[in-house]
Design a protein around this nucleic acid. Structure first.
Lengths: 117, 117
DNA sequence: CAGCATCCTTATCGATACTG
DNA sequence: CAGTATCGATAAGGATGCTG
């Protein structure tokens, strides 16, 4: 079977959107450093709301990229971690993120030039 | 200077969003094969509307990832191509896309398992 | 702590019509 | 051909209150 994200109806496209979406990428990104709990994640992914983080984690879990482990204690404790596939995905994502971060001076330069026209 | 996409106000975050956004990534992805004209792009990025493609291209051009070359002929002809930075970015993006496409069976499997609970 | 439910505001998007 | 302008539907997102 062939998958192609460039095709409108390909099932790979929703998954790509989860991974590259506003919060999906950042969530995967912070999880490469190891498992994190819900509120820990919230703090690291600066700006994400409870609701969005929750939704994002569910989508990533459903895609098999994130593993959710709930301990039935009081207070409750839930650990989120990357699956093997999640880690591979996150690695590629971080390669992109690091490139962009490193080249931001160039980007800002281009923006200034564009706006000056 | 330090850039960090995980920080809410970092200027790198909008750029990451342009690159990983719904249409930005696909647009960069098809441009790796060489320069394309507007309507050619529209056809290849299946599902994108005129408006979204236009906006996407402007954002990518402003970030210095895409080069726009307009010829003042009649009918008009405009070629879009990747800048060197755009190409490096697209390469990383494609690495991610190809990984996901290759592993979609695994993803679909995980989704089925998730939904069955 | 780790969420879900609800409401409400805002941005996104697509469709349509139009221009140089 | 390569767009821009405008509008209405829809979805994303934030704030708040509540639960086990």
């Amino acid at each position: 079977m062939e998958f192609n994200v460039f095709a409108k109806a390909c099932p790979s496209r929703p998954t790509l959107e989860h991974v590259t979406g506003r919060w999906g990428g950042l969530t995967l990104g912070v999880l490469v450093d190891g498992p994190l709990r819900f509120n820990e994640l919230r703090r690291r992914v600066d700006g994400v709301s409870e609701k969005m983080l929750s939704q994002t984690l569910q989508a990533l879990e459903r895609d098999g990229l994130v593993h959710r482990e709930a301990q039935n204690t009081n207070p409750p404790r839930v650990d989120y971690s990357l699956t093997p596939l999640g880690r591979e995905t996150a690695d590629r994502l971080l390669a992109l993120i690091h490139l962009l971060e490193a080249r931001m001076p160039e980007v800002l330069e281009a923006q200034k030039a564009y706006d000056a026209r």
